[in-house]
Write a protein that binds this DNA or RNA. Structure first.
Lengths: 194, 194
DNA sequence: GAAGTTTTGGATGGATCAGTACAAAATGAG
DNA sequence: CTCATTTTGTACTGATCCATCCAAAACTTC
Protein backbone atom coordinates (compact mmCIF):
# COMPACT_ATOMS: atom_id res chain seq x y z
CA UNK A 1 0.00 0.00 0.00
CA UNK A 2 2.10 2.84 1.26
CA UNK A 3 4.71 3.99 3.64
CA UNK A 4 3.68 3.31 7.25
CA UNK A 5 3.88 5.76 10.10
CA UNK A 6 7.00 5.70 12.20
CA UNK A 7 5.27 7.01 15.36
CA UNK A 8 2.34 6.23 17.62
CA UNK A 9 -0.46 8.76 17.38
CA UNK A 10 -1.49 8.29 21.00
CA UNK A 11 2.01 8.91 22.23
CA UNK A 12 2.15 12.07 20.17
CA UNK A 13 -1.08 13.30 21.74
CA UNK A 14 0.34 12.48 25.15
CA UNK A 15 3.49 14.45 24.48
CA UNK A 16 1.48 17.39 23.15
CA UNK A 17 -0.67 17.24 26.27
CA UNK A 18 2.43 17.54 28.44
CA UNK A 19 3.59 20.54 26.44
CA UNK A 20 0.25 22.35 26.60
CA UNK A 21 -0.03 21.45 30.26
CA UNK A 22 3.36 22.93 31.04
CA UNK A 23 3.08 26.17 29.09
CA UNK A 24 -0.56 26.77 28.16
CA UNK A 25 -2.12 26.98 24.73
CA UNK A 26 -0.87 30.31 23.44
CA UNK A 27 2.63 29.95 24.82
CA UNK A 28 3.14 26.54 23.22
CA UNK A 29 4.41 27.05 19.68
CA UNK A 30 4.14 24.51 16.91
CA UNK A 31 7.91 24.28 17.15
CA UNK A 32 7.55 23.31 20.81
CA UNK A 33 5.06 20.67 19.78
CA UNK A 34 7.51 19.26 17.24
CA UNK A 35 10.20 19.02 19.89
CA UNK A 36 7.87 17.58 22.52
CA UNK A 37 6.52 14.92 20.20
CA UNK A 38 9.75 14.32 18.34
CA UNK A 39 7.86 14.70 15.06
CA UNK A 40 8.45 16.95 12.12
CA UNK A 41 6.06 19.69 11.14
CA UNK A 42 4.71 17.68 8.24
CA UNK A 43 3.89 14.69 10.39
CA UNK A 44 1.99 16.81 12.84
CA UNK A 45 0.01 18.66 10.19
CA UNK A 46 -0.54 15.47 8.26
CA UNK A 47 -1.96 13.75 11.33
CA UNK A 48 -3.76 16.63 13.02
CA UNK A 49 -5.58 19.40 11.27
CA UNK A 50 -4.04 22.23 13.22
CA UNK A 51 -2.53 23.29 16.51
CA UNK A 52 -6.04 23.91 17.75
CA UNK A 53 -7.16 20.45 16.73
CA UNK A 54 -4.19 18.87 18.46
CA UNK A 55 -4.99 20.86 21.56
CA UNK A 56 -8.54 19.54 21.58
CA UNK A 57 -7.20 16.02 21.30
CA UNK A 58 -4.71 16.62 24.09
CA UNK A 59 -7.35 18.16 26.32
CA UNK A 60 -9.72 15.28 25.68
CA UNK A 61 -7.01 12.85 26.61
CA UNK A 62 -6.27 14.71 29.81
CA UNK A 63 -9.93 14.73 30.77
CA UNK A 64 -10.22 11.03 30.04
CA UNK A 65 -7.31 10.23 32.35
CA UNK A 66 -8.58 12.45 35.13
CA UNK A 67 -12.07 11.13 34.74
CA UNK A 68 -10.83 7.57 35.09
CA UNK A 69 -8.88 8.51 38.20
CA UNK A 70 -11.95 10.14 39.71
CA UNK A 71 -14.16 7.16 38.97
CA UNK A 72 -11.66 4.85 40.54
CA UNK A 73 -11.41 7.03 43.62
CA UNK A 74 -15.17 7.26 44.03
CA UNK A 75 -15.63 3.53 43.71
CA UNK A 76 -14.06 2.76 47.09
CA UNK A 77 -16.06 1.52 50.06
CA UNK A 78 -15.54 4.66 52.11
CA UNK A 79 -18.37 6.79 53.47
CA UNK A 80 -19.33 9.64 51.16
CA UNK A 81 -17.62 12.37 53.13
CA UNK A 82 -14.40 10.37 53.23
CA UNK A 83 -14.52 10.05 49.49
CA UNK A 84 -14.70 13.82 49.20
CA UNK A 85 -11.87 14.04 51.70
CA UNK A 86 -9.80 11.64 49.62
CA UNK A 87 -10.55 13.68 46.51
CA UNK A 88 -9.35 16.89 48.11
CA UNK A 89 -6.30 15.15 49.52
CA UNK A 90 -5.37 13.89 46.08
CA UNK A 91 -5.60 17.39 44.67
CA UNK A 92 -3.32 18.65 47.43
CA UNK A 93 -0.82 15.89 46.72
CA UNK A 94 -0.84 16.72 43.04
CA UNK A 95 -0.51 20.45 43.49
CA UNK A 96 2.10 20.27 46.22
CA UNK A 97 4.24 17.93 44.19
CA UNK A 98 3.68 20.04 41.10
CA UNK A 99 4.83 23.22 42.79
CA UNK A 100 8.25 21.79 43.38
CA UNK A 101 8.48 19.83 40.16
CA UNK A 102 6.93 22.02 37.50
CA UNK A 103 4.05 24.07 38.90
CA UNK A 104 1.80 23.48 35.97
CA UNK A 105 -1.39 22.92 37.96
CA UNK A 106 -4.36 21.30 36.26
CA UNK A 107 -4.85 21.51 32.52
CA UNK A 108 -8.62 21.75 32.86
CA UNK A 109 -8.51 24.69 35.25
CA UNK A 110 -5.81 26.32 33.16
CA UNK A 111 -7.92 25.91 30.05
CA UNK A 112 -11.04 27.30 31.70
CA UNK A 113 -9.13 30.44 32.42
CA UNK A 114 -6.94 30.80 29.37
CA UNK A 115 -8.95 29.44 26.47
CA UNK A 116 -12.56 28.79 27.36
CA UNK A 117 -13.92 32.31 27.02
CA UNK A 118 -12.77 32.71 23.42
CA UNK A 119 -13.23 29.19 22.11
CA UNK A 120 -16.67 27.66 21.96
CA UNK A 121 -15.55 24.16 21.00
CA UNK A 122 -13.18 23.98 23.93
CA UNK A 123 -15.77 25.50 26.25
CA UNK A 124 -18.27 22.85 25.19
CA UNK A 125 -15.79 20.04 25.80
CA UNK A 126 -15.03 21.42 29.23
CA UNK A 127 -18.72 21.75 30.02
CA UNK A 128 -19.32 18.10 29.11
CA UNK A 129 -16.45 17.08 31.34
CA UNK A 130 -17.80 19.22 34.17
CA UNK A 131 -21.22 17.60 33.90
CA UNK A 132 -19.68 14.16 34.02
CA UNK A 133 -17.73 14.90 37.15
CA UNK A 134 -20.72 16.61 38.69
CA UNK A 135 -22.96 13.59 38.09
CA UNK A 136 -20.39 11.16 39.48
CA UNK A 137 -19.92 13.14 42.67
CA UNK A 138 -23.63 13.81 43.03
CA UNK A 139 -24.32 10.07 42.92
CA UNK A 140 -21.81 9.47 45.68
CA UNK A 141 -23.32 12.18 47.85
CA UNK A 142 -26.85 11.02 47.12
CA UNK A 143 -25.92 7.55 48.32
CA UNK A 144 -24.31 9.10 51.36
CA UNK A 145 -27.44 11.07 52.07
CA UNK A 146 -29.57 7.94 51.87
CA UNK A 147 -27.10 6.17 54.15
CA UNK A 148 -27.44 9.00 56.67
CA UNK A 149 -23.85 10.13 56.28
CA UNK A 150 -24.91 13.46 54.84
CA UNK A 151 -27.61 15.62 56.41
CA UNK A 152 -30.96 15.01 54.74
CA UNK A 153 -31.57 18.72 54.27
CA UNK A 154 -28.61 19.17 51.98
CA UNK A 155 -28.93 18.96 48.23
CA UNK A 156 -26.55 16.42 46.75
CA UNK A 157 -26.21 18.28 43.48
CA UNK A 158 -25.30 21.53 45.19
CA UNK A 159 -22.77 19.76 47.37
CA UNK A 160 -21.29 18.16 44.28
CA UNK A 161 -20.88 21.60 42.73
CA UNK A 162 -19.27 22.67 46.00
CA UNK A 163 -16.87 19.74 45.93
CA UNK A 164 -15.71 20.70 42.45
CA UNK A 165 -15.45 24.34 43.45
CA UNK A 166 -13.39 23.29 46.46
CA UNK A 167 -11.02 21.45 44.18
CA UNK A 168 -10.64 24.51 41.98
CA UNK A 169 -10.21 26.73 44.99
CA UNK A 170 -7.45 24.54 46.37
CA UNK A 171 -5.72 24.47 43.02
CA UNK A 172 -5.73 28.24 42.71
CA UNK A 173 -4.58 28.60 46.31
CA UNK A 174 -1.72 26.19 45.64
CA UNK A 175 -0.73 28.27 42.65
CA UNK A 176 -0.86 31.34 44.86
CA UNK A 177 1.88 29.76 46.94
CA UNK A 178 -0.14 28.36 49.84
CA UNK A 179 1.79 25.49 51.40
CA UNK A 180 0.80 21.89 51.83
CA UNK A 181 -0.01 22.04 55.54
CA UNK A 182 -2.26 25.04 55.03
CA UNK A 183 -3.97 23.43 52.06
CA UNK A 184 -4.77 20.43 54.23
CA UNK A 185 -6.21 22.68 56.91
CA UNK A 186 -8.35 24.43 54.29
CA UNK A 187 -9.62 21.12 52.96
CA UNK A 188 -10.41 19.99 56.45
CA UNK A 189 -12.37 23.16 57.13
CA UNK A 190 -14.21 22.87 53.85
CA UNK A 191 -15.38 19.37 54.72
CA UNK A 192 -17.48 20.88 57.50
CA UNK A 193 -19.89 22.02 54.80
CA UNK A 194 -20.67 18.46 53.72
CA UNK B 1 11.12 73.02 29.59
CA UNK B 2 9.80 70.59 27.05
CA UNK B 3 6.82 69.27 25.25
CA UNK B 4 4.20 68.05 27.72
CA UNK B 5 2.38 64.77 27.52
CA UNK B 6 -0.95 64.75 25.79
CA UNK B 7 -2.34 61.83 27.82
CA UNK B 8 -2.85 60.79 31.42
CA UNK B 9 -0.59 57.97 32.50
CA UNK B 10 -3.14 56.58 34.93
CA UNK B 11 -5.81 56.44 32.28
CA UNK B 12 -3.41 54.60 30.02
CA UNK B 13 -2.73 52.03 32.72
CA UNK B 14 -6.47 51.68 33.21
CA UNK B 15 -7.06 51.07 29.54
CA UNK B 16 -4.21 48.56 29.40
CA UNK B 17 -5.69 46.80 32.41
CA UNK B 18 -8.99 46.43 30.59
CA UNK B 19 -7.21 44.97 27.58
CA UNK B 20 -5.16 42.46 29.58
CA UNK B 21 -8.24 41.62 31.61
CA UNK B 22 -10.26 40.89 28.51
CA UNK B 23 -7.71 38.81 26.61
CA UNK B 24 -4.94 37.75 28.97
CA UNK B 25 -1.26 38.62 28.83
CA UNK B 26 -0.03 36.60 25.87
CA UNK B 27 -3.06 37.24 23.72
CA UNK B 28 -2.87 41.00 24.13
CA UNK B 29 -0.51 42.41 21.52
CA UNK B 30 1.28 45.71 21.76
CA UNK B 31 -0.94 46.80 18.88
CA UNK B 32 -3.99 45.98 21.01
CA UNK B 33 -2.49 48.08 23.78
CA UNK B 34 -2.03 51.00 21.41
CA UNK B 35 -5.64 50.80 20.35
CA UNK B 36 -6.94 50.34 23.89
CA UNK B 37 -4.99 53.28 25.25
CA UNK B 38 -5.27 55.42 22.15
CA UNK B 39 -1.52 55.96 22.26
CA UNK B 40 1.15 55.40 19.68
CA UNK B 41 3.87 52.82 20.07
CA UNK B 42 6.43 55.46 20.93
CA UNK B 43 4.37 56.94 23.70
CA UNK B 44 3.87 53.56 25.28
CA UNK B 45 7.50 52.54 25.08
CA UNK B 46 8.59 55.99 26.16
CA UNK B 47 6.38 55.82 29.24
CA UNK B 48 6.63 52.14 30.11
CA UNK B 49 9.69 50.02 29.71
CA UNK B 50 7.99 47.13 27.95
CA UNK B 51 4.78 45.21 27.56
CA UNK B 52 5.73 43.25 30.62
CA UNK B 53 6.29 46.39 32.65
CA UNK B 54 2.96 47.80 31.58
CA UNK B 55 1.32 44.56 32.56
CA UNK B 56 2.79 44.75 36.04
CA UNK B 57 1.47 48.28 36.36
CA UNK B 58 -1.95 47.23 35.14
CA UNK B 59 -2.05 44.24 37.48
CA UNK B 60 -1.00 46.41 40.42
CA UNK B 61 -3.78 48.84 39.60
CA UNK B 62 -6.33 46.05 39.40
CA UNK B 63 -5.24 44.68 42.76
CA UNK B 64 -5.41 48.14 44.31
CA UNK B 65 -8.99 48.60 43.14
CA UNK B 66 -10.08 45.18 44.28
CA UNK B 67 -8.31 45.59 47.57
CA UNK B 68 -10.13 48.86 48.18
CA UNK B 69 -13.45 47.23 47.36
CA UNK B 70 -12.71 44.38 49.75
CA UNK B 71 -11.73 46.72 52.54
CA UNK B 72 -14.89 48.71 52.06
CA UNK B 73 -17.00 45.59 52.10
CA UNK B 74 -15.37 44.25 55.25
CA UNK B 75 -15.81 47.54 57.09
CA UNK B 76 -19.58 47.18 57.39
CA UNK B 77 -21.32 46.50 60.67
CA UNK B 78 -22.50 43.03 59.69
CA UNK B 79 -21.64 39.88 61.64
CA UNK B 80 -18.52 38.14 60.34
CA UNK B 81 -20.33 35.36 58.54
CA UNK B 82 -22.57 37.87 56.77
CA UNK B 83 -19.50 39.69 55.58
CA UNK B 84 -18.23 36.49 54.04
CA UNK B 85 -21.67 35.96 52.57
CA UNK B 86 -21.62 39.43 51.08
CA UNK B 87 -18.16 38.78 49.66
CA UNK B 88 -19.28 35.61 47.92
CA UNK B 89 -22.43 37.32 46.69
CA UNK B 90 -20.39 40.10 45.16
CA UNK B 91 -18.26 37.58 43.33
CA UNK B 92 -21.35 35.89 41.97
CA UNK B 93 -22.75 39.23 40.82
CA UNK B 94 -19.50 40.06 39.07
CA UNK B 95 -19.10 36.72 37.40
CA UNK B 96 -22.73 36.36 36.37
CA UNK B 97 -22.73 39.80 34.82
CA UNK B 98 -19.40 39.13 33.21
CA UNK B 99 -20.59 35.95 31.56
CA UNK B 100 -23.17 37.80 29.58
CA UNK B 101 -21.16 40.95 29.02
CA UNK B 102 -17.62 39.84 28.40
CA UNK B 103 -16.75 36.72 30.38
CA UNK B 104 -13.35 37.90 31.40
CA UNK B 105 -13.48 36.72 35.00
CA UNK B 106 -10.97 38.06 37.50
CA UNK B 107 -7.60 39.35 36.37
CA UNK B 108 -5.88 38.02 39.47
CA UNK B 109 -7.16 34.48 39.04
CA UNK B 110 -6.42 34.66 35.33
CA UNK B 111 -2.89 35.79 36.05
CA UNK B 112 -2.28 33.08 38.63
CA UNK B 113 -3.07 30.55 35.99
CA UNK B 114 -1.61 32.09 32.88
CA UNK B 115 1.47 34.00 34.00
CA UNK B 116 2.44 33.27 37.57
CA UNK B 117 4.29 30.01 37.04
CA UNK B 118 6.74 31.50 34.56
CA UNK B 119 7.19 34.98 35.94
CA UNK B 120 8.69 35.49 39.36
CA UNK B 121 8.04 39.21 39.57
CA UNK B 122 4.36 38.73 38.84
CA UNK B 123 4.16 35.77 41.21
CA UNK B 124 5.66 37.87 43.98
CA UNK B 125 3.19 40.69 43.38
CA UNK B 126 0.31 38.22 43.48
CA UNK B 127 1.64 36.66 46.67
CA UNK B 128 1.79 40.06 48.38
CA UNK B 129 -1.78 40.74 47.31
CA UNK B 130 -2.89 37.35 48.59
CA UNK B 131 -1.34 38.00 51.97
CA UNK B 132 -3.07 41.34 52.24
CA UNK B 133 -6.46 39.86 51.49
CA UNK B 134 -5.79 36.97 53.83
CA UNK B 135 -4.91 39.28 56.70
CA UNK B 136 -7.97 41.46 56.14
CA UNK B 137 -10.34 38.51 56.14
CA UNK B 138 -8.59 36.83 59.04
CA UNK B 139 -9.07 39.96 61.13
CA UNK B 140 -12.78 39.96 60.38
CA UNK B 141 -13.12 36.31 61.31
CA UNK B 142 -11.03 36.73 64.42
CA UNK B 143 -13.36 39.48 65.57
CA UNK B 144 -16.29 37.27 64.74
CA UNK B 145 -14.80 34.47 66.74
CA UNK B 146 -14.33 36.72 69.75
CA UNK B 147 -17.92 37.93 69.34
CA UNK B 148 -19.11 34.35 69.39
CA UNK B 149 -20.35 34.41 65.79
CA UNK B 150 -17.78 31.86 64.71
CA UNK B 151 -17.16 28.63 66.62
CA UNK B 152 -14.22 29.02 68.98
CA UNK B 153 -12.59 25.83 67.76
CA UNK B 154 -12.11 27.17 64.25
CA UNK B 155 -8.88 28.82 63.18
CA UNK B 156 -9.52 32.27 61.74
CA UNK B 157 -6.52 32.11 59.43
CA UNK B 158 -7.58 28.79 57.98
CA UNK B 159 -11.11 30.07 57.46
CA UNK B 160 -9.71 33.14 55.76
CA UNK B 161 -7.80 30.87 53.36
CA UNK B 162 -11.03 28.98 52.84
CA UNK B 163 -12.93 32.16 52.07
CA UNK B 164 -10.41 33.09 49.40
CA UNK B 165 -10.46 29.57 48.02
CA UNK B 166 -14.25 29.72 47.91
CA UNK B 167 -14.05 32.90 45.88
CA UNK B 168 -11.65 31.25 43.43
CA UNK B 169 -13.80 28.14 43.30
CA UNK B 170 -16.90 30.17 42.48
CA UNK B 171 -15.03 32.09 39.81
CA UNK B 172 -13.82 28.94 38.11
CA UNK B 173 -17.28 27.40 38.37
CA UNK B 174 -18.80 30.49 36.80
CA UNK B 175 -16.33 30.21 33.97
CA UNK B 176 -17.30 26.57 33.64
CA UNK B 177 -20.80 27.73 32.83
CA UNK B 178 -22.53 27.22 36.17
CA UNK B 179 -25.51 29.55 36.37
CA UNK B 180 -26.26 32.25 38.88
CA UNK B 181 -28.85 30.34 40.90
CA UNK B 182 -26.54 27.39 41.29
CA UNK B 183 -23.62 29.61 42.24
CA UNK B 184 -25.76 31.10 44.99
CA UNK B 185 -26.66 27.64 46.24
CA UNK B 186 -22.99 26.69 46.27
CA UNK B 187 -22.06 29.82 48.19
CA UNK B 188 -24.83 29.12 50.65
CA UNK B 189 -23.60 25.58 51.18
CA UNK B 190 -20.02 26.77 51.56
CA UNK B 191 -21.04 29.14 54.34
CA UNK B 192 -21.87 26.14 56.49
CA UNK B 193 -18.14 25.67 56.97
CA UNK B 194 -17.75 29.04 58.69
C1' DG C 1 10.94 84.53 18.69
C1' DA C 2 15.08 81.27 19.36
C1' DA C 3 16.98 77.43 21.92
C1' DG C 4 16.48 73.34 24.22
C1' DT C 5 13.87 69.32 25.56
C1' DT C 6 10.44 65.88 25.32
C1' DT C 7 6.65 63.65 22.94
C1' DT C 8 4.87 61.68 18.98
C1' DG C 9 3.99 59.22 14.49
C1' DG C 10 5.51 56.28 11.13
C1' DA C 11 8.83 53.39 9.24
C1' DT C 12 11.55 49.66 10.15
C1' DG C 13 14.07 45.35 12.23
C1' DG C 14 14.73 40.89 13.33
C1' DA C 15 12.42 37.13 15.38
C1' DT C 16 8.88 34.08 15.60
C1' DC C 17 4.26 32.70 14.57
C1' DA C 18 0.90 28.94 12.35
C1' DG C 19 0.59 26.63 8.35
C1' DT C 20 1.88 24.98 3.39
C1' DA C 21 4.47 23.24 -0.72
C1' DC C 22 7.18 19.95 -2.62
C1' DA C 23 10.31 16.52 -3.53
C1' DA C 24 12.85 12.64 -1.56
C1' DA C 25 12.39 8.52 1.13
C1' DA C 26 10.04 4.45 2.45
C1' DT C 27 7.00 0.86 2.10
C1' DG C 28 3.43 -2.81 0.38
C1' DA C 29 1.06 -4.66 -3.76
C1' DG C 30 1.36 -6.46 -8.18
C1' DC D 1 11.80 -4.93 -9.60
C1' DT D 2 8.20 -1.36 -10.53
C1' DC D 3 4.44 1.36 -9.40
C1' DA D 4 1.29 3.67 -6.42
C1' DT D 5 0.76 5.72 -2.11
C1' DT D 6 1.85 7.73 2.13
C1' DT D 7 5.11 9.79 5.31
C1' DT D 8 8.74 12.77 6.21
C1' DG D 9 12.34 16.63 6.15
C1' DT D 10 13.31 21.14 4.51
C1' DA D 11 12.42 25.33 2.75
C1' DC D 12 9.30 28.71 2.58
C1' DT D 13 4.95 31.72 2.97
C1' DG D 14 2.76 35.92 4.69
C1' DA D 15 1.45 37.56 8.95
C1' DT D 16 2.31 39.18 13.35
C1' DC D 17 5.15 39.55 17.29
C1' DC D 18 7.81 43.09 20.58
C1' DA D 19 10.80 46.65 20.33
C1' DT D 20 13.70 50.48 18.38
C1' DC D 21 15.00 54.44 15.55
C1' DC D 22 14.63 58.91 13.86
C1' DA D 23 12.98 63.09 12.36
C1' DA D 24 9.15 66.27 12.81
C1' DA D 25 6.07 68.48 16.02
C1' DA D 26 4.95 70.79 20.30
C1' DC D 27 5.77 73.13 24.23
C1' DT D 28 8.49 75.87 28.04
C1' DT D 29 11.94 78.90 29.23
C1' DC D 30 14.74 82.52 28.34
Amino acid sequence: MARPRKFDEERAVDAAMEAFWAAGYEATSTQDLCEATGLGRSSIYNTFKSKHDLFERALARYMECKSAELTELLESELPARDKIRALLQRVIDEESAARGADGRGCLVVNTYVEVSARDDAVAAALARDYDKRLAAIRDVLESGRRAGEIAAGKDARTLAHLAIASVSGLRVAARAGVGRAELEAIADAALAAF
